[in-house]
Design a protein around this nucleic acid. Sequence first.
DNA 1: CTATAAAGTGAAGCGCAATTCACATTATGA
DNA 2: TCATAATGTGAATTGCGCTTCACTTTATAG
Lengths: 208, 208
Amino acid sequence: MPEKKLSRREREKQQQRKEMLEAAMQLFSEKGYHNASMQEIAEQAEFAVGTLYKFFKNKEEMYKALVTEQADRFHVALGAALEISEDEVEQLRNYIQVKGEVFMSNDSFIRLYFAETRGASFNIKAGLDSELRDLHYQMVQRVAAVFARGMERGRFQQIAEPYHLAVALDSLCNAFLTNWLEGRDSYPESPDIILNIFFQGLLVPESL
Amino acid sequence: MPEKKLSRREREKQQQRKEMLEAAMQLFSEKGYHNASMQEIAEQAEFAVGTLYKFFKNKEEMYKALVTEQADRFHVALGAALEISEDEVEQLRNYIQVKGEVFMSNDSFIRLYFAETRGASFNIKAGLDSELRDLHYQMVQRVAAVFARGMERGRFQQIAEPYHLAVALDSLCNAFLTNWLEGRDSYPESPDIILNIFFQGLLVPESL
DNA sequence: CTATAAAGTGAAGCGCAATTCACATTATGA
DNA sequence: TCATAATGTGAATTGCGCTTCACTTTATAG
């Protein structure tokens, strides 16, 4: 990573860009892509509209930059969570934990992310949604690998395909996060609440 | 239900209305609310734009009518699925089954429904999304009641709160449906694949 | 068949918001 | 200090798409 290569001016521009994206993030997540105007974003960021266009070719590019940059950050964090431990259960626990932490501290982003990856994305003509979905798919595959390894090692029972389990785990996290977003419930303090649903069989063994 | 009260003309109008909504459904689900124009919808439905406005006050009302009518149908079907059997496991099985069936045969609708209930809904100024979310919430509560009753009767173990289990089960279905929508995978033939994730504990019991 | 009403049409009006660009302001450095 | 370039500005332009409504077509009934 080139670090100190940046002149004062360049750092300043980075900062401005960042502030524009922050304003955009807030408005897009509040009102959606089509209901947030460039005018508003400019005001919120305390720039003139024209200045936004010095940084971004158009509204769509701005939105793309916003979403992809955040999504990258997010996926890097999730990936790292899977690397912390060698133990499969710990890996899953960390995944749930980090996913919750990152989302809860970026609730503007979470709205956009869900809108793009879970609802049909209707904001942008093409490309962005499939790009994000691929990122997400890769992440699910990495989680699937954890399940697979746990099975190979005899740690997990083979109650379903690893990929299905990964989809299931990820969707559980999302469901609880959505609930939290809607203020219906809190995201579980402990990842174990989510893990338990997987790890404990619900049905009472038939004792005929 | 008033049935045969309709004159020929009135039946005709119902039919026209239905065709308009079908065209709208297709375009909204393909391109999203803001990218589907009334012009296009009119062409698709083989009416003039003006005629659409004889049936719907404006674009937003049309969209609302579309989504709420479909969502009602859908929730009625789901509710009925829970009534088919007395047995808790069967009730859950039917829920999963019917949810899959209804969605798979209305894949245009599923896109809109997910966009409205799972992503942040940015299409409509106010009201619709919260209305749908409430419907959905009530459905989840009904599923939660099934879990609760199963626990009371000693059929289920108390591995998590009934409401959490219901959220979990519902989100699993959605995750598999989303996967199917994206063409990554098929929705499980049998509801048991989803149920197994709940009913079988994943972790191998420690045998020290 | 004719008059009247009901239904259907689509070109034109209108407002909104993305984008542009001529100008103003600020920074640079000679 | 002043000339020049880089940056920032926001009013004006532009185009799009919802909505309207005067008109045409079709149905009804006398």
